[in-house]
Amino acid sequence: MKTTYQSWHKQTALITGAASGIGYELACIFACDTYNLVLVDKNGQKLSEIADKFQQKFGISVKNIVKDLSIASVPEEIFTELQQASIKVDVLVNNAGFGNYGLFNETDLTAELKMLQVNLVSLTHLTKLFLKDMVNQGDGKILNVASTAAFQPGPLMAVYSATKAYILLFSEAIANELADTGVTVTVLCPGPTESAFHETTGMADSELLREKKMMTAETVAKIGYRGLMANTTVVIPGVKNKILAELVRFAPRKLVTQIARSTHEVKK
C-alpha cells in the first residue's frame, strides 16, 4: 500500500487506537466527512487495510503510524514525525485505551503500568504536544474517550476506572481553560459498548454485561462525533447512562462503590 500526501491541505484528524472499536468507527465518520487521517495503532496490518479502503472510497489521504502507546517515548515520536512531514493536526482524538479485571492485589502490575501509560500518560502527553499549535492558530478540537466508569470507583477494575476518572476531570478542566481560544475539548463517556474489550478483560460474564443489550461502537462514535462538532464538553451516550451518571453524585459514596462492585462481579 502506497500512501499519498497530495491533499494534506484539508483538515486532518489524528485518531489513536484506530484499528478497531470506537476508534475505527470514528475514523469512518471523519473519512466520510473528507478529513485526512493520521491513524495510530500497534496493529499495522489492520491500519494498512483501513488506509487502502478509505483512500479509495473517500479520496482522502491517510498516514498510518504503527506505534505502541504503552512506550513512553511514542507521543513525542508521533509529534516529531508529523512535524517533519508538515502535517498539521486539526482534531486530536485520544481513543486508545484498555482495561483489566480482578482484585488489585492479584492483578498484574506490568499490565497496569502499561494501562496507566496508554490510558492516562500518553493521552496527556499527546494533548500537551498538539494543543500548543492549536491555541497559537486559534482553532482546533480534542476528543478524549473516557467511560461512564469515570463517575464512580470501580472495584475489580480499580486502575481502569481511575484512569477514566482522570480523563473526565482533566478534559473538563482544560476545556474551561481554553474558553475563548478557539480550541474546544470534548470528553466522550460511553457505557458498556459492543467490542472485544469485555472478553479481553475477563468481565464478559459480569452482572454489568450478562444478557444486557449494549450500544454498538458505531452508535457511540456517531454520538461522540456530534458532540465534538457541537463543542459539547461532556458527552454521555444513552439516556440511562446519563441518569446513572447524575445519580451517583447524590448517593453515599460507600453505597455507590458497593453497587459498582456488585455489578462488576462475575456470578457463578
Rank of each mutant, 00 (worst) to 15 (best):
V40M: 00
N95Y: 00
F30S: 15
K63Y: 10
F30W: 12
D52F: 09
E77A: 12
D41W: 00
P75V: 15
K88R: 13
Q83S: 05
F58R: 07
T110V: 04
G44N: 04
I78N: 06
Q56D: 13
L82T: 03
Y101V: 05
L37H: 08
E76T: 07
K46P: 06
K46C: 07
D68E: 02
S73R: 01
I29P: 15
Q45L: 13
A85I: 02
K67H: 12
K63E: 10
S70F: 03
V89Y: 10
F30C: 15
N94Y: 05
Q84N: 10
F79V: 11
N43Y: 05
Q56G: 09
Q84I: 15
I71R: 11
Y35C: 13
G59P: 07
N105M: 13
C28G: 04
I50S: 08
S70A: 12
L103G: 00
D68G: 01
S48Y: 11
Q55G: 11
T80S: 07
V93P: 06
E77Q: 12
V74D: 06
D68F: 04
P75Q: 10
V62P: 13
F58M: 09
C28Q: 11
S86N: 12
T110H: 01
V91S: 14
N64Q: 10
K42W: 14
A51G: 05
G44R: 06
K53V: 02
A96W: 02
V66G: 03
I78E: 11
F98W: 07
N64S: 06
T110L: 01
V91G: 14
F98H: 09
K46L: 14
I65S: 02
N64R: 08
E112W: 05
C28W: 03
A85Q: 05
L82A: 03
C28A: 03
C28S: 11
T107A: 05
Q84H: 08
S86G: 03
I78Q: 12
E77N: 10
L92E: 03
Q83L: 04
V89C: 09
I87S: 05
D68I: 00
A72V: 14
I29C: 13
A111W: 01
K53P: 01
K67R: 11
E81H: 06
K88W: 05
I87K: 06
G97I: 10
G102D: 04
C28F: 03
D41Q: 02
T107S: 02
E76H: 06
A27K: 00
T107H: 01
E112T: 06
E106S: 06
V38G: 13
N64W: 00
K46V: 14
E77H: 08
N95I: 02
Q83Y: 05
D90V: 11
D41H: 02
E49G: 12
N36L: 09
F58S: 08
I87D: 08
L69M: 10
S86E: 13
I87H: 08
E106N: 06
E112C: 05
K53S: 07
Y35E: 13
K42Y: 15
N43L: 02
N36F: 09
G99F: 02
K57Y: 03
S48D: 15
E81I: 07
F79H: 15
I78F: 08
L82V: 03
A72M: 12
A85N: 03
F30T: 15
E76V: 06
